[in-house]
Every structure is written in structure tokens, then in C-alpha cells.
């Protein structure tokens, strides 16, 4: 390969971005797997989390990575309240309505952000922002390497939580059979809200890992939301491993697309994959439930 010197770093960069995408998609797939709803507000909530990390840094001087223990519970609480008191109530349990409610929420959140914080993009400057690690084949920016490892670690924690704890067991039971779960004494509304909260907490973690190498702006969510949907559909709605593998595939696709087709047209590959998967294999690569 003549161009290996360019392609290898592109793939590695794609993998690091893909891991963070996977974390965003993980929240979406968890929410779909348990509540069977498509959360169109996912991108908008990620944007809120990015601003949260930004303001913690800008106003209180808290390093993005140290903000993890603040952002994860904060976003969990936000998600819990939204599901319990807004989405769960307004949707009347009809899929179309829930879809529209989350769409309405995303419109409110995005434009409130635009109103409050203007459309400026905001970045932070950390000591390690431009540092790199040498992997032998390529140089990778430190924030991206941290994001990659961090995203994989959080995915593993989440997987263990779902697998081995009573909470995880209850959530899985609820995902499989709502009525049965109710009959054995599971508080369905509470657990729905907890699941939604966990899905949104993933966004808090993703935001902490993203911001050192990324930026916050009011419309950033819509870029992520379609990518996250693509990953979820590609991996199989409700599948954890699917979200992880899908995230990495999409990250690399985007990176290589940008390399060969240019910044603007390169993004098209992701959406073509999305359409193709929806049409030909709507169950995705790993079409099982949580």
C-alpha cells in the first residue's frame, strides 16, 4: 500500500472517534431496547452535556476528565426527570406520539441553547490538548486516545451493570416482558425512568471525553443524532455489542470517507450505510435485545 502512511492514521483516528460515537449510541440503544422508543432528543441532550462540561471548565476550572463524576449523575438525573415527568406522561404510550414528544423536546432544548448561549462554537484549551502519543505506526492525539480507552471502559462497566446486578436483571426483564415484570413487583415507571437516565448518563460521559478534542455549539446535536441512529440501526436496535461494533465501523467509515471524498462529501458514506441497512437488514448486524 502506497498510502499506508495516510490510511493507517485515518483508521486509528476513526476508531477513536468511533468509540465515542459508540458511547452515544449505547445510550440510544439502551433506551430503545428497554422503552422501545426512539429518542430524537438524544443529540440535543448530548449538546447540553457538552455545555455542562464546558461551563464546569470555564467557570469552575474543573478538568473535563475530572468532571466525569459530576456529569454522569447530573445527566442521569436529567434523563430520569424527563422520562418520568415529560416523555412518559405526554406520550400516552403511543409510539408515534413519543417520537414526536422527543422531537419537540429536541427543538426546545436546541433553540433554548441558541437563545441562551448564542451560536458561537466554544472550545477549551487544556495542557494536554495538543499532546500526542506515538503508537509506532501513527501519532494519536492524547485526548483522542483517552476518549477511546475511556469509552471502551464505560461500555464495559455498563455491560457488567446490565449483566450482573439486580438492577440490570430487572431492566432486562422489563425490556423483554413489561407485564411480567410488573407482576413480579418491578416498579415499571421508575425503572423506565432509570433506564432512560442511564442512557442519558452515557451522554454525560461522552461529553467529558469529547470536549478536549471537540467543541460545543447549539446545533452540534443534530450531527450526532443521525450518526447515533445509524450506529444503532447498523448494530441492531437494542444490542450493546452492536452499538460498539457499529460505532467503530461508522467512525472508520467517516474518517476514510473524509480522506477520499473530502470533508463535505465524505459524510455521505455514513448515511448511505444507514439507508442500506434500514432497507436490507433492518435488524442490523446483531439484532438481539438488551
Amino acid at each position: 500500500m502506497v498510502e499506508a502512511a495516510i490510511i493507517v492514521p485515518a483508521i486509528l483516528n476513526g476508531l477513536t472517534t468511533g468509540a465515542v460515537y459508540a458511547l452515544v449510541a449505547l445510550g440510544l440503544t439502551l433506551i430503545y431496547g428497554v422503552l422501545h422508543i426512539i429518542n430524537f432528543a438524544h443529540g440535543a441532550l448530548l449538546m447540553v452535556a457538552l455545555y455542562g462540561v464546558y461551563f464546569l471548565y470555564a467557570l469552575a476550572g474543573i478538568d473535563p476528565y475530572l468532571a466525569l463524576p459530576i456529569m454522569i449523575p447530573a445527566m442521569f438525573a436529567l434523563g430520569y426527570l424527563l422520562q418520568r415527568y415529560v416523555i412518559g406522561r405526554a406520550g400516552h404510550g403511543k409510539d408515534e406520539n413519543v417520537m414526536l414528544v422527543t422531537l419537540g423536546l429536541s427543538i426546545v432544548i436546541e433553540n433554548l441553547a441558541l437563545y441562551l448561549w448564542s451560536s458561537d462554537t466554544r472550545t477549551i484549551e487544556t495542557a494536554y490538548g495538543f499532546a500526542t502519543v506515538d503508537l509506532g505506526v501513527a501519532l494519536i492525539a492524547v485526548p483522542k486516545a483517552v476518549a477511546f480507552v475511556g469509552a471502551l471502559a464505560i461500555t464495559a462497566v455498563l455491560w457488567a451493570l446490565m449483566r450482573w446486578t439486580d438492577l440490570g436483571k430487572a431492566i432486562r426483564a422489563l425490556a423483554r416482558e413489561r407485564r411480567g415484570a410488573q407482576l413480579v413487583g418491578i416498579d415499571v415507571e421508575h425503572l423506565y425512568a432509570v433506564s432512560f437516565g442511564i442512557g442519558i448518563a452515557c451522554l454525560g460521559a461522552a461529553a467529558c471525553l469529547l470536549l478536549p478534542s471537540y467543541y460545543a455549539s447549539p446545533h452540534i446535536g443534530s450531527a450526532f443524532v443521525l450518526i447515533a441512529f445509524t450506529i444503532v440501526v447498523l448494530g441492531g436496535m437494542g444490542s450493546f455489542i452492536g452499538a460498539l461494533v457499529g460505532g467503530l465501523i461508522i467512525g472508520v467509515t467517516e474518517s476514510l470517507g473524509g480522506l477520499f471524498l473530502g470533508e463535505s462529501l465524505g459524510k455521505i458514506g455514513v448515511f448511505l450505510i444507514f439507508i442500506a441497512v434500514l432497507l436490507f437488514r433492518p435488524t442490523g448486524l446483531f439484532g438481539q435485545r438488551v
Binding site: V101, L103, G104, I109, N111, Y115, S118, S119
Partner: peptide, 22 residues
């Protein structure tokens, strides 16, 4: 007139209509 404010209202109306006036 502030950027975004009318859309905030539209989004809120969408949620409220679905909640109370389907």
C-alpha cells in the same frame, strides 16, 4: 425577536398538544 425563541415555543407547543390535545 431573538434567535431560536420562536422555535422554543413551537417545540413546547408540539409537546403540549400531544400531551393534552392529541
Amino acid at each position: 425577536a431573538a434567535p431560536g425563541l420562536n422555535l422554543v415555543l413551537y417545540g413546547a407547543v408540539l409537546v403540549l398538544i400531544i400531551a393534552f390535545l392529541p
